[in-house]
Simulated scan of single mutants.
Amino acid sequence: MRKGFVLGVAALPLLAGGCIAKTAFDVVTLPVKAAGQTADWATTSQDEADRNAGRKLRKQEAREGRERKKHEEACRKDPDNCGPYQGYRAGDPEGDED
Rank of each mutant, 00 (worst) to 15 (best):
M1E: 09
R2D: 15
K3E: 07
K3V: 05
F5Q: 12
F5W: 10
G8P: 01
V9W: 06
A10V: 12
A11E: 07
A11R: 04
L12K: 01
P13L: 09
P13N: 12
L14A: 12
L14Y: 05
L15D: 11
A16S: 06
A16L: 13
A16R: 07
G17H: 04
G17E: 08
A21N: 01
D26I: 00
D26C: 07
D26T: 00
V28K: 05
V28Y: 14
L30R: 03
P31G: 04
V32F: 14
V32N: 04
V32P: 01
V32E: 12
A34I: 00
A34Y: 00
A35I: 04
G36V: 00
A42M: 09
A42W: 00
A42S: 07
T43M: 13
T44H: 00
Q46D: 15
D47G: 08
E48V: 10
R51V: 02
N52Y: 07
N52Q: 12
A53I: 01
A53L: 11
L57H: 00
L57W: 03
L57M: 11
R58M: 10
R58H: 07
Q60A: 10
Q60H: 04
A62I: 00
R63V: 03
G65E: 06
R66M: 07
E67I: 00
E67Q: 12
E67R: 05
E67H: 06
R68E: 10
K70Q: 14
E72H: 09
E72M: 04
E73W: 09
A74C: 05
C75Q: 02
R76H: 09
K77H: 00
P79D: 04
P79E: 02
G83N: 10
P84V: 03
P84C: 01
G87L: 14
Y88R: 07
Y88D: 12
R89W: 11
G91T: 00
D92V: 03
D92Y: 08
P93H: 07
E94Y: 12
D96Q: 15
D96K: 15
E97T: 15
